[in-house]
Computed example of a mutant assay.
Amino acid sequence: MRERRSLPVVGQPPQERADAARNRQKIIEVAARTIAERGAENLSLDEVARAAGVGVGTVYRRFGDRTGLLLALLDERERRFQSAFFSGPPPLGPGAPAGERIEAFLHALVDRILADQDLFLLLEKGKTGSGRTGPYQVHHIHLATLLARACPATDAAYLADALLAPVNAHLIAAQREERGMSVEQIKAGLTTLVEAVTRA
């Protein structure tokens, strides 16, 4: 019986045989170690296959290309993040006022991106609109739902896009590296945006 899935999570694999699952886990572990040691831009599927002790065809069949492998690496952290804002403790999870949850969600999303910044930068590079599928849709629906509660007279779907727009790896990297902004300053700016939107 196939597992039922209600959320479009990045890189979520289909049900696997035990040996295929073991190979997949080995490949992901080797890829994560390679990125930690040498950076995401130096990830080579051929080298990953050799280090994992599998054929390079296995890697390509399982993940398709380097982007597919990067998405798989992000998968587990994205699942944990979604679990936190859907069912974790407040203010990120249920139980806090909508405005507080919006602020907590955007702050947590900044942390989420920073935790895998190199991977997000590679995935965003040269892909206009690539963030509009998968987790972005889950994030958008969640944020729009909270906005509809916090300010019901507004266009919640549009405001969700507007609040998510500044939370991307390239902009955050530029703010930190070119403008010298701290993570606290970035989060404070998002708080100001949330307050302006929810007041209106």
Rank of each mutant, 00 (worst) to 15 (best):
R5L: 14
S6H: 14
L7G: 05
V9T: 12
V10L: 14
P13G: 13
P13R: 14
P14A: 15
A18R: 15
D19P: 05
R22P: 03
R24E: 07
Q25K: 08
K26E: 03
K26V: 01
K26M: 05
I28F: 02
E29G: 02
V30F: 01
R33L: 10
T34F: 08
T34M: 11
I35M: 03
E37S: 02
R38I: 07
G39Q: 04
A40V: 07
A40R: 01
N42A: 11
L43C: 01
S44N: 01
E47C: 01
E47H: 04
E47S: 02
E47P: 01
R50S: 06
A51Q: 08
A52C: 00
G55C: 00
T58W: 05
T58K: 08
V59N: 01
V59S: 00
V59P: 00
Y60I: 12
R61H: 11
R61K: 13
R61G: 04
R62P: 07
F63Y: 13
F63T: 04
F63L: 10
R66P: 01
R66M: 05
L74V: 06
L74H: 03
D75L: 10
E76Q: 12
R77V: 04
R80H: 11
F81G: 06
Q82V: 13
F86K: 10
S87Q: 12
S87E: 09
S87W: 10
G88V: 04
P89R: 14
P90D: 09
P90T: 10
P91T: 06
G93A: 09
P94E: 07
G95T: 12
R101V: 12
I102A: 07
A104S: 11
L106P: 03
H107W: 06
L109S: 07
L109Q: 08
V110K: 00
V110T: 04
D111N: 08
R112N: 08
I113T: 12
A115P: 02
A115G: 04
Q117D: 02
L119S: 06
L121A: 10
L122S: 05
L122F: 02
L123Y: 06
K125Q: 11
G129Q: 01
S130R: 12
G131D: 02
R132W: 03
T133N: 11
Q137G: 05
Q137Y: 01
V138R: 03
V138F: 03
H140L: 05
H140F: 00
I141L: 12
I141R: 13
H142W: 05
H142L: 07
L143W: 05
A148G: 09
R149T: 10
C151K: 14
C151R: 15
P152G: 08
D155T: 03
A157V: 04
A157K: 06
A157W: 02
A157C: 00
L159G: 02
L159W: 14
L164K: 00
A165H: 10
V167E: 07
V167M: 06
N168L: 07
H170R: 15
E177L: 11
E178S: 13
M181L: 15
S182H: 07
V183F: 05
Q185I: 07
I186C: 10
A188C: 06
A188I: 11
L190Q: 08
L190E: 02
T191L: 14
T192H: 12
L193Q: 13
V194E: 09
R199C: 11
R199Y: 14
